[in-house]
């Protein structure tokens, strides 16, 4: 079991690194799918199969697909799909990220058990949960693990009813707002096709000359002049 965990974790971390580092956005998206899947596997290892199912359905089934659509829709007009990383932020990012990682590692190892709990470092076994149908009295705790779908549903309509409703509201708001925001009117009022937009791109000046079409062609031909 530990080998399985190590295998999944290594895969997951590699996928995460791939997502962050892949120059091609589509590859990054695929790596992200792999990462989501390893997280679902982790949930299974944690005996939260319901959550693993939700993870696969929502993240891989919806979120990743949505991201793929976004990548397709925003494919660079220059024709290349690679994106670069910003050099100026590289060092601070590495320092910040690795620093946070080491602080977290140290913190996890060094955690003090409050109120007589086990420390995180010493929690090598999880609390024993009687399996269903073993004749033991069913506690909420064991029901939560053996019958998670039902318990999640029950929690959603009792204790967490307000978060549940708020989540509905949030999704509605996101839907409505995203439709409005992404809706394309007939005329993009300030689209860069109207003129020349010099944009600075770390030092180099990229001029997008886009108004060269007297015929009003819809295809923006972008001359990327890098000086």
């Amino acid at each position: 079991m530990t080998y399985l965990f190590v295998f999944i974790s290594v895969l997951g971390l590699l996928a995460a690194l791939g997502t962050v580092l892949a120059r091609n956005l589509v590859h990054a998206g695929l790596f992200l799918v792999a990462f989501f899947f390893t997280v679902a596997c982790q949930f299974v290892l944690l005996e939260a199969e319901f959550l693993a199912a939700v993870q696969v359905l929502v993240y891989i089934g919806a979120v990743a697909i949505l991201l793929m659509f976004a990548i397709m829709l925003t494919r660079n007009v220059q024709g290349d799909m690679t994106t670069t990383t910003s050099r100026t932020w590289l060092l601070p990012a590495l320092v910040g990220g690795l620093g946070l990682f080491f602080v977290l590692m140290f913190g996890i190892n060094d955690q003090v058990g409050l109120k007589g709990r086990m420390t995180w470092a010493s929690a090598s076994t999880r609390p024993e949960i009687p399996r269903a149908g073993e004749g033991k009295p069913v506690t909420p705790r064991s029901a939560a693990i053996n019958d998670m779908g039902r318990m999640v549903g029950r929690e959603m309509v009792t204790r967490f009813v307000v978060p549940f409703e708020v989540a509905g509201l949030l999704l509605t708001a996101a839907l409505v707002g995203a439709v409005v925001v992404a809706y394309r009117e007939g005329d993009d009022a300030e689209s860069p096709r109207r003129g020349i937009q010099p944009t600075r791109l770390h030092g180099a000046v990229t001029v997008q000359a886009t108004n060269g079409h007297a015929d009003g062609s819809d295809l923006p031909s972008t001359a990327s002049v890098t000086s």
Binding site: L104, G107, D110, Q111, V112, K115, G116
Partner: peptide, 15 residues
Amino acid sequence: GDSHIGLAGNVSGMT
């Protein structure tokens, strides 16, 4: 609880 309180020696809590 016991004497382990606050952030004393508790990097995870601080984080």
